[in-house]
């Protein structure tokens, strides 16, 4: 009888333990999920909420698309700008080459004028030669490694000196380098009645040779403009 009572007591204890344990676990679950409140909503409410969310989702999606389109537009613009700037850079480079602000290299001719005992070169001889070379299609010219640019002047200061840009004094021998069509320049200068033909006939010492990859240095100094107004 006593043994039976003990089993009853233990069993009841275990049962109450299980019951309360499960109850409290359930309480916890309900407490946690009650915050969301989904289980309390009816079908129609849930549907409405779902529709709301869908609308919001679509709206957000639309905005996203718009933003994406904007981004691609901006990207296009950026690349366009890049192209423009590249073109500008190229133009600037070309302009600098033409202006004489960069060292250039190319095929051309080298003409050496040397004073001899009888004849002395004057500024007009060199001027004529530069003119002839330009006429023959020279793209870049230098005299004694001084670049001939748009506002280069050649003038006498004495029998011995000729001045160039920025009062560069030069004297014989005058080495004139020209990049351009070699055949054209050579034939233009040495043709009968041409520059070399006439001068060498008059007793001047003149020498011309065609050379590949002549290097012509850039114009030293600034190109200051004081009076030109844009």
């Amino acid at each position: 009888m006593k043994k039976g009572k003990w089993t009853i007591i233990v069993t009841i204890g275990i049962m109450s333990f299980i019951l309360v344990l499960v109850m409290f676990m359930q309480f916890k679950v309900v407490e946690q999920t009650d915050i969301v409140g989904i289980e309390n909503m009816r079908d129609t409410e849930l549907r409405e909420a779902l529709a709301d969310w869908k609308e919001k989702y679509e709206e957000t999606n639309k905005k996203l698309e718009e933003n994406r389109a904007k981004i691609s537009e901006y990207k296009e613009k950026i690349s366009e700008n890049k192209e423009v700037s590249e073109i500008l850079e190229k133009e600037l480079e070309e302009a600098n080459i033409i202006l004489g602000k960069t060292d250039v290299e190319g095929d051309g001719v080298i003409i050496t004028l040397t004073d001899n005992d009888e004849k002395t070169y004057t500024y007009s001889n060199i001027l004529d030669l530069i003119n002839e070379l330009k006429f023959a299609g020279a793209e870049a010219i230098s005299i004694n490694d001084i670049r001939v640019i748009g506002n280069t002047y050649i003038a006498n200061i004495s029998n011995r000196y000729i001045i160039l840009n920025n009062n560069n004094k030069i004297t014989s021998p005058y080495v004139i380098k020209a990049i351009g069509d070699q055949n054209n320049m050579q034939s233009n200068l040495s043709i009968k009645g041409g520059y070399i033909y006439v001068l060498s006939g008059n007793g001047y010492t003149i020498n011309m040779e065609a050379k590949k990859k002549i290097k012509i240095y850039k114009h030293e100094g600034e190109l200051d403009l004081k009076y030109i107004e844009k």
Binding site: K5, I8, I9, V10, I12, G13, I14, M15, S16, F17, I18, L19, V20, L21, V22, M23, F24, M25, Q26, F27, K28, V29, V30, Q32, T33
Partner: peptide, 28 residues
């Protein structure tokens, strides 16, 4: 005696139930 065992069982159940891991909502 029976009442004591019930009380002990309940207390144990409360303590363990409060500290038990959360059950998924589907089983609740």
């Amino acid at each position: 005696m029976v009442i004591l065992s019930i009380i002990i069982g309940c207390l144990l159940g409360v303590i363990i139930g409060v500290n038990a891991p959360l059950i998924p909502y589907a089983y609740s």
